[in-house]
C-alpha cells in the first residue's frame, strides 16, 4: 500500500500497524542474519562482493582487510641503496624529510643498481607525522631505495617517535667522516699553497668546524656565525626578500644560510624553539616565519 493513501482514522491506524510490522520484520531479519559475518578478504578476492548480509565489523587488531602490495603507507628507505641525493627532501611538499649529507673522501660503495655512493647521510630523518603520503619522494628517487610500504598502523604515544631515523651513521661517526673530509680538503689546499686563497679557506674551515657539533646542538652554531654574516648584510630586509624564492624550495645549505641571516628580533623565539627540539626539522619553521612577516610588511 502506498504511504498515506488512506488518510482516514482507520487508514492511518492500519498503515501504522503494517509499517510497524514491516519494521519489526526487517530488524529481525538482521538479527537472524547476524549468524554470518564478513571475513577479512581483500577487494581482489572474487568473493569480496558475495557476502551481502550478516555482520560487517572486523575485530581490527585481530583481523584486518589485506592491503594490496602497492599500498602507499609508511615510508621506508633502504639505506644500502641510498645515494643521499636529497631529491626526495626537495620534492616533499610538506618538508618531512630532513637530510644532512657529509662528503666522503672516496667512493663508499655501489648501490645494487650500479650507482656509486659518495655521500654519507649524517642525518636521514622522515617525519611520518607530517607526511601527506603523496608518494612524490618515491617517484623522484633515482635508485628506488625510498619506497612506501604496506604498514599503515604505526601510531605512537609520543609525536617525536613519528620521526624515523634511517641514517646508518652514528653522530660520532658522522663527526669523524666530516673531519676526514676536511683534513683531506685542507691538505689539498695546502698543497696548492696559494696565499690569495688563504682568506676564504680559513673562513670556510671555520664555518665547517663550527657546524661540526651542530648535528648534536645547533644552538651552538649561532654565536659563531652571526658575526660573520652581520657585516655582509647591512640592511636585513631587502636581502632577505631577495632570498625568498630560494626559501620555497628549501635545501639544507640554503636553510642554513637563512638561519644565519635571520633577523635579530626573533632571536629569543628561535633559541627557545631550537632548544626544545634540537636537530629536528622543526628548526626550519622559525626561519621561514619571519620571512613571511617581512613580506607582509613591505
Amino acid at each position: 500500500m502506498q504511504k498515506g493513501a488512506n488518510n482516514s482514522y482507520f487508514g492511518n491506524i492500519w498503515e501504522g500497524i503494517t509499517s510497524s510490522w514491516q519494521g519489526l520484520k526487517l530488524s529481525f531479519k538482521h538479527i537472524w542474519e547476524a549468524r554470518q559475518r564478513r571475513t577479512p578478504i581483500g577487494i581482489t578476492d572474487p568473493d569480496y562482493f558475495k557476502q551481502e548480509t550478516g555482520i560487517v565489523t572486523l575485530t581490527y587488531p585481530y583481523e584486518s582487510l589485506p592491503v594490496p602490495d602497492n599500498g602507499r603507507y609508511r615510508l621506508h628507505n633502504e639505506m644500502e641503496d641510498c645515494i643521499v641525493c636529497d631529491k626526495c627532501a626537495e620534492i616533499c611538499p610538506v618538508s618531512c624529510i630532513d637530510i644532512e649529507a657529509v662528503k666522503s673522501t672516496e667512493e663508499i660503495r655501489k648501490t645494487s643498481d650500479g650507482h656509486s655512493v659518495r655521500l654519507y647521510a649524517a642525518r636521514f630523518d622522515i617525519d611520518m607525522a607530517k607526511c601527506c603520503f603523496c608518494g612524490l619522494c618515491t617517484t623522484v628517487c633515482p635508485t628506488e631505495c625510498l619506497t612506501m610500504t604496506k604498514t599503515y598502523d604505526f601510531s605512537e604515544f609520543d609525536i617525536r617517535d613519528m620521526i624515523y631515523h634511517f641514517s646508518d651513521l652514528s653522530p660520532e661517526q658522522a663527526v669523524e667522516k666530516r673531519q676526514n673530509y676536511e683534513t683531506l680538503q685542507t691538505a689539498k689546499q695546502q698543497a696548492k699553497a696559494s696565499t690569495t686563497n688563504v682568506q676564504p679557506t680559513e673562513e670556510k674551515t671555520a664555518e665547517q668546524t663550527s657546524t661540526t657539533p651542530a648535528t648534536a646542538k645547533p644552538v651552538m652554531k649561532k654565536p659563531a656565525i652571526k658575526p660573520v654574516t652581520k657585516p655582509v648584510i647591512t640592511d636585513p630586509t631587502p636581502s632577505i626578500s631577495e632570498e625568498t624564492p630560494y626559501v620555497t624550495e628549501v635545501t639544507p645549505e640554503i636553510s642554513q644560510t637563512i638561519q644565519e641571516a635571520a633577523p635579530q628580533d626573533t632571536k629569543a623565539e628561535e633559541t627557545d624553539q631550537s632548544e626544545q627540539a634540537p636537530a629536528k626539522p622543526v628548526m626550519k619553521k622559525p626561519v621561514i616565519k619571519p620571512m613571511i612577516k617581512k613580506k607582509t610588511d613591505e
Binding site: 530488524s27 538482521h30 547476524a34 550478516g54 555482520i55 575485530t59
Partner: peptide, 13 residues
C-alpha cells in the same frame, strides 16, 4: 548485543 546484531555490528567482544 541485540542492537549490534540489528545494526550488523558485533557488539562487545
Amino acid at each position: 548485543k541485540l542492537s549490534a546484531f540489528i545494526q550488523d555490528r558485533l557488539g562487545p567482544t
